[in-house]
Design a protein around this nucleic acid. Structure first.
Length: 456
RNA sequence: GAGGGCAUAGCUCAGUUGGUUAGAGCGACAGUUUGUGGCACUGUAGGUCGUGGGUUCGAAACCCAUUGCUCUCCCCA
């Protein structure tokens, strides 16, 4: 067989032991908080039917879905049909004749699909969390991968804004535990809708939000330019400029927006929502929640409050986001199940923590004791002791080859193993063992019983 | 989808206006050292200079193409 050059697909990564341990530290922190708030786990398949995903993430999103080529395309009997189907693909259409499955793009849509499929069996309000990889055919760059993990928590079957309050508290708790200084940006799609209404063009909502979302990146003048390009009239742009000039504290922003939307019913609703969440923070959130009227997020399915997480002191895209959607399951034929959810982007959180050096010194794991291999009879005695320690839940390993001390010590060093346990001919004869702390260099002679009760 | 940058040993990188047999540090392996590691010293192995073509007496270097990686924009976690 021809030799294959060892490589992995663009935007994917292997994770070494050290990295996996750090990632697990993040996963466990998030998972424990989810559990603490009453969310139950769910896992869905890596692949979904293509039609489940298509059209749910906007035009850009559709392009970024990883599609899976059907098997059996070389079937001679179906060649005509397959050629016809492929013509459709060349014309930019999807066809089940060529591809009918795709890799999961996010966790929210598969969850909505799951709820729609199982709504008869579920107890509402239904609270689930999900920690799994997703795939996007994006071009990789800093903080952007083609395979990455999301950690989602969603509540469906409840319209209560108390859910939003809980989710904000989950965000604050998790980032507190991880030691990341974040800003939790909050806005409401209703406020964005109201702005479009105020500008006399609800149909222009997408154009407006896409443009104003870029305010902090490109500045007010460029935003106005883009609005003009997108067909907004001068008086409408003036309105939008007024809206964008709203600043100050959360309270000041609310006063200003109330004036602006005094006669816009949708806007008033949005303001009430934000006020409710702001007032419902309780003690967990201190000053991290910030109103950002330019926050837009994906325009696909959000209908109420929306969130986005920005890490402070580091150049990185959002490390989390979420919001309320009125009718996600409606896309799958089951109407009237409203929901709200949040997502953590673990890979970016990892990058942020690495850059700011926020990982704790000792993320536990790995072998605690290395048993030296110093001969056949010695090895047997060591092995028996080792198994007894393993039964006590202490991670041990024995050097598989009988070789000189030097080599076994170096192995322990490389793996950062804390203790070496030595049974040579002398210890074998005296029926004891030598335990050496490899950090301090101290070593003590212990009886077998003393070793088994040693406070590691 | 658009546009930059980079590609030399396992890793990080030198390599002069194009000129003999392409180097260093780290790592690996062996030895000094068959009952005590981290240090030190000595030695050994390891390179189609990403790939293909071109220019030239001569290319790691210059030109073209190609692939991979990386970064920015779009968009996103």
């Amino acid at each position: 067989m021809a030799k294959t050059k060892a490589s992995i697909p663009q935007g994917t990564r292997d994770f070494s032991a050290e990295v996996v341990r750090k990632r697990n530290y993040i996963f466990n922190t998030i998972k424990n908080v989810f559990e603490l708030y009453g969310f139950a786990p769910l896992e869905t398949p890596a692949m979904e039917n293509l039609e489940t995903l298509m059209g749910k993430y906007g035009e850009e999103g559709d392009k970024l879905i990883f599609k899976i080529l059907n098997n059996g395309l070389d079937n001679a009997a179906k060649q005509e049909q397959i050629k016809n189907d492929f013509e459709k693909v060349l014309a930019g259409k999807n066809t089940s004749g060529i591809t009918e499955r795709a890799l999961r793009y996010d966790l929210t849509i598969p969850f909505a699909r799951y709820v729609a499929m199982n709504h008869g069996q579920l107890t509402f309000p239904f609270k689930r969390y999900q920690i799994q990889p997703v795939w996007r055919a994006d071009r990789p760059q800093r903080g952007r991968y083609r395979e990455f993990y999301q950690c989602d928590a969603d509540v469906v079957g409840s319209k209560s804004l108390l859910n939003e309050v809980e989710l904000v508290n989950i965000y604050a708790t998790v980032f507190n535990k991880l030691g990341i200084d974040v800003e939790i940006k909050i806005n409401s799609r209703k406020i964005l809708a109201a702005l479009a209404e105020l500008c006399g063009g609800s149909d222009k909502m997408v154009d407006i939000t896409v443009a104003i979302d870029k305010l902090d990146k490109i500045g007010i003048d460029k935003v106005k330019e883009e609005l003009t390009q997108r067909g907004l009239q001068q008086n409408q742009i003036t309105n939008i400029e007024q809206y964008l000039q709203i600043g100050g504290t959360n309270e000041e922003k609310l006063v200003a927006i109330k004036t602006l939307f005094a006669n816009v019913e949708t806007g008033k609703q949005g303001i009430e929502e934000i006020e409710y969440v702001l007032n419902g923070q309780w003690s967990t959130v201190n000053g991290q929640l910030a109103i950002d009227f330019t926050l837009a997020r994906g325009l696909n399915y959000y209908t109420g409050i929306i969130f986005e997480i920005k890490a402070q002191g580091v150049q990185m895209g959002s490390i989390g986001g979420g919001g309320r959607y009125d009718d996600l399951t409606g896309l799958f034929g089951v109407p009237d199940i409203p929901g709200v959810g949040i997502s953590f982007g673990v890979d970016r959180i990892y990058d942020v923590m690495e850059e700011l050096k926020l990982f704790p010194e000792a993320i536990s794991g790995g072998t605690k004791i290395l048993f030296f291999n110093l001969g056949e009879a010695e090895r047997k005695a060591a092995f028996t002791l080792m198994q007894q320690l393993r039964n006590k839940n202490i991670a041990c390993e024995i050097y598989p080859e009988q070789t000189k001390f030097d080599k076994q010590f170096k192995y322990a060093d490389k793996k950062q193993i804390r203790y070496a346990l030595i049974i040579g001919s002398k210890e074998l004869a005296e029926n004891n063992c030598v335990l050496k702390n490899l950090q301090s260099g101290e070593q003590t002679i212990l009886s077998h019983n003393e070793l088994l009760t040693y406070p590691f």
